[in-house]
């Protein structure tokens, strides 16, 4: 698996051809249509809900009152979401990285069966899992529990993380690992000192996607919590919209804040995102 983004066909030369500027204009138009809902989210988060029923197309009378209310009502939930997402990333990497290495380096019938199982688990609806997890978590006192949600999200994140990192680790030359072992390093040392540093990019990609999916998790949050104490931000948004609130500036401000991780990743980690998108399907 190639983890870098390949430049477009025709390369940079065609990409800079000014005669193709009409294509750029068309591209901007398509993007504008696709991203309009995102624009509208930001736009209405900046306009007060009191007064007119419709919103202006531009936030000329911008106010941050929606954000003030979003932070005062949902601040705690943001912290909860952050804890869950970070906990999930750590636990997923600790479990998935060695597994990815084990599966890429030691080929056996058992290993390929497990890879097949991982592929299938990605297709099992989370609803099905939640249905059986609730009774189990209820017995283990993991309902309304941050750690319970970390466990559930980790389980959901492991298959993708393992498959993604395994694809990369399979391309590490065997000789490199074996050289370290000739020098006296054990399997674990060779893994930690050779494989992990080389696989940095794949590990970062896995971490970013795990973070995003745990941060966006709605279903486990919905089914495995019931009290206001442990309430991820996705549930905060759901509570607003299922109550048919007309306080759209607060709802949209919350949605904007909940989308910040996605926006940051798209700006600062673009190459990882594109790599992960493709890896998800091509394995």
């Amino acid at each position: 698996m190639n983890l870098t983004v390949r430049p477009g066909a025709g390369g940079a030369r065609a990409g800079l051809d000014p005669r193709r500027l009409p294509m750029t204009a068309l591209g901007v138009l398509f993007l504008a249509v696709m991203l309009f809902p995102v624009y509208w989210m930001v736009n209405s988060s900046l306009q007060s809900s009191s007064g007119a029923t419709t919103r202006d197309w531009l936030p000329l009378d911008a106010t941050l009152s929606g954000y003030a209310k979003a932070i005062s009502e949902q601040g705690q939930n943001f912290v909860t979401s952050l804890l869950i997402a970070l906990g999930t990333v750590v636990l997923t990497l600790v479990v998935a990285t060695p597994a990815a290495y084990g599966l890429s380096r030691f080929r056996s019938r058992g290993a390929s069966t497990f890879v097949l199982v991982l592929l299938i688990t990605q297709m099992i609806p989370a609803m099905v899992i939640a249905n059986a997890l609730y009774p189990l978590f209820n017995q283990l006192y993991l309902i309304n529990n941050v750690f319970g949600l970390i466990l559930a999200n980790t389980a959901a994140g492991i298959p993708f993380a393992v498959l993604l990192m395994r694809a990369f680790m399979g391309s590490i030359p065997r000789a490199l690992v074996e050289a370290a072992m000739v020098d006296g390093a054990g399997q674990l040392r060779a893994f930690l000192s050779i494989v992990v540093p080389i696989s940095k990019n794949a590990i970062v990609t896995a971490a970013l996607f795990t973070f995003l999916s745990a941060w966006s998790d709605f279903l486990f949050a919905l089914t495995l919590t019931s009290t206001p104490e442990v309430r991820p931000i996705t549930l905060g948004i759901y509570d607003y919209i299922s109550a048919n609130t007309q306080d759209w500036d607060t709802v949209m401000a919350t949605a904007v804040l909940a989308s910040i991780p996605a926006a940051l990743l798209l700006i600062f980690a673009q190459r990882y995102i594109a790599a992960g998108a493709v890896a998800g399907a091509v394995k």
Partner: peptide
């Protein structure tokens, strides 16, 4: 971007 934003948002 639409793909990365939380579905519920």
């Amino acid at each position: 971007l639409p793909w990365l934003i939380p579905l519920i948002a």
